[in-house]
Design a protein around this nucleic acid. Structure first.
Lengths: 222, 222
DNA sequence: GTATTATTAGAGTATATACTCTAGGCAGTC
DNA sequence: GACTGCCTAGAGTATATACTCTAATAATAC
């Protein structure tokens, strides 16, 4: 593998494991057993590394969220979207953690991420639309639907942060893809009230697959 | 005002405006026109300052979220809770921005924040319960209710980050309390499907007060 | 083989950051 | 007016961090 690609891969790995803030370019170089000079031969600065990683993330999610226009949407499609989006979130999980700082320090990223968010929201909105067409959920007025889509986005992008704080007392980074996907339970919770009676059981069954089993994620009555 | 309190106040102000990551103890001292030595006379380190600010935040939100047990809940109560919570979020907005890093670097904060989250979730859950008792929303099974509560929490705590990214192309920190409170629209969107017919119009009217007017927050169809 | 280009090492640097240390001022008290 | 306890200044430090520079080596072209 090319050094350049190794740098991207290691950076992503280290960022995910320990957070972008805790990983310096020197750490990355040391991890790869290359010199800092070598790293800076391939990338002008740390921001460029992050930006390139973001572009891969963006590409992945865009790919996952392609909506078939030539056939009705199925529940399996929905399950696939949810699984895929959470897979993406997992693979690039460092990104949302330090999002605000990253956007503050890189104009390109700021612009691109904004567009990315809009594309995701539009995709979620279209998914709702196609679910309604397929008779899986009840059709809703446009403004309610887009507000719902936004809530789905908020739940998805914040789920990881919540899990991290819920797990807070244990050793850091004790977080698995499986637990992350319990976020799907939360997303489907948003849709429950809109599901048509015919699909209700099937949606609830899908949701049940992701029900959290750990006490941390439940509400503690006080 | 005592120097100690001035340090806390200035720190909060600077953290909110520019992010904890961008503000050093030297910045805080300079802002107050005191020496670093003076600052470190009052606080052992930066973490201690942040921890103390967090405790004030916690206290404020706990105070806001006291649920009256001796009378039924009203829609005005709900409006008050939402307004208050978003006020608190605004006053301590730096906190959620760098949450993960802050929790990673301070064990006390990690523990306390986890308890804080649980208290908030329990409060939201109780509010749903009392809204149901008052006939404002339909009663739901416990597990659905707690999943809904968690979604409310996720939407609330992620709304600011979303707004920041939506505003991303403009000058930084161009964010107002008014815009932040559009988050109330999103929270009430979560509750819409559960509102009883008798209260539907009133809840929708309350929600309408917070409807976003800016194009940024709408879904762009692509 | 030689010229050219791409890649790498590794020492080095300017700046920042969290924090320390010493000396001293100031207010109250006897 | 000296003693005491609280507060403050300000220079200073160890470490880290992003990044640079020069020289050498490997790869490729001709």
């Amino acid at each position: 593998m090319k050094t350049r690609d190794k740098i991207l891969l290691s950076s992503l790995e280290l960022f995910n494991e320990r957070g972008e803030r805790n990983i310096t370019t020197n750490h990355i170089a040391a991890h790869l057993a290359i010199s800092p000079g070598n790293l800076y031969y391939h990338f002008r600065n740390k921001s460029d590394i992050i930006y390139e990683i973001f572009q891969a993330y963006e590409k992945l999610v865009d790919y996952y969220l392609e909506i078939p226009e030539n056939r009705p949407m199925t529940l399996d499609d929905l399950a696939f979207y949810l699984e895929s989006v959470f897979d993406g979130l997992w693979s690039y999980r460092f990104f949302h953690r330090d999002l605000e700082y990253l956007l503050d320090s890189d104009l390109r990223l700021r612009r691109d991420y904004r567009e990315f968010t809009n594309r995701c929201l539009a995709a979620i909105d279209r998914i709702f639309g196609k679910l309604a067409e397929a008779g899986i959920v009840q059709a809703q007025p446009d403004d309610l639907r887009s507000a719902m889509s936004l809530n789905v986005w908020l739940v998805i992008t914040n789920w990881m942060a919540f899990l991290k704080t819920a797990h807070a007392s244990e050793e850091p980074s004790g977080l698995s893809l499986g637990e992350l996907k319990q976020g799907i339970y939360q997303v489907l919770t948003l849709e429950v009230p809109y599901v048509t009676p015919e699909y209700r059981d099937r949606v609830l069954a899908l949701r049940e697959k992701y029900r959290p089993t750990l006490p941390e994620t439940g509400v503690v009555d006080g």
